[in-house]
Amino acid sequence: MSAGPVERPPGEAGGGSAAPASPRALAWRRRRHSLGRFWAGYRGNRAGLAGLAGLAVFVLIALCAPLLIGPADLSLTDAPGGPHEPPSAAYPLGTDNYGRSILDLVIWGSRVSLTVGFLATLMCVGLGTLVGIVAGHYGGFGSTVLMRITDWVLVLPALVLAVAFAAVMGQGTVTIILAIGLTAWPTTARLVRAQTLAVEARPYIDRAKALGGGHGHVMTRHVLPNVMPIVLAQTTLTVAESIIMESTMAFLGLGDPNTLSWGGTLQEARNAGAVSSGLWWHLLPPGLAIVLVALAFTLCGRAIEGVLNPRLRERR
């Protein structure tokens, strides 16, 4: 932690001497600067880097999947191998009940699983954080209404709501993302609101108000950084949850039945009796993939929290 305002170029501090920079340029320079500081802190966290590298590998594999696997490899009727072959040189992770390579299924499935995991999580955590902070900050009648809506969504069975979505919007991955995003946010909203209420009671909120800070300033500069730990923890939990949820929804026919995903492969393994007949290679790889992605998210989340929370940084 050596970078910071101290080591800014002198021209910036002096003001008059250099060509006067526009406020926007100054703001950008400051933002770049704090981003640099953030990265410097993050880089020092080995577990965080490992998590980031893991996520990068998964994303890279998902992007390169069409280069590695042809449509023939995933064909149900014209599968390359025999059904339920154990791992071998030709099929490193064995084959499924149709004779497709599990490795291929996992690689191809990462595309849908990661997309759903990322987007649904982004949507659900974003919506939950927004609702939670707004409800906690403003209080009053509007907040009560907002929280009653939250409670209402919380008690609605997510699957029923998702089926209704699919009926309106048609089947597909987008429907699944929306269905997860629009049903899973209330938990986040409730947690964030509770934390917001605790933060709002702190004297530094009063100080910010007395300095002239408006609602936006208080919410983004003071409340948001202090509810971040909860938001990050919630993110890591939601990623794994969304990936599993996707398989449930695909199983119920809300997605395109031909789409391959980790959850879908797990579902198929279960249907094919992999649990009872000890076909571990059918179950384990997609399950492990979900665990690894969730783990990578957890590591990243903890590292970000470590950088944002100055007290944690010291203890490390």
Binding site: G4, A13, A27, Y204, A208, L211, G213, G214, R221
Partner: peptide, 25 residues
């Protein structure tokens, strides 16, 4: 209690300036 634990001293002192004048040279 009246300082945000996540802001460094520089940011805490500059807060008022930024609220009223934005980022200035």
């Amino acid at each position: 209690g009246s300082l945000n634990p996540r802001h460094v001293v520089y940011d805490a002192v500059a807060e008022g300036l930024r609220i009223h004048y934005g980022v200035t040279a």
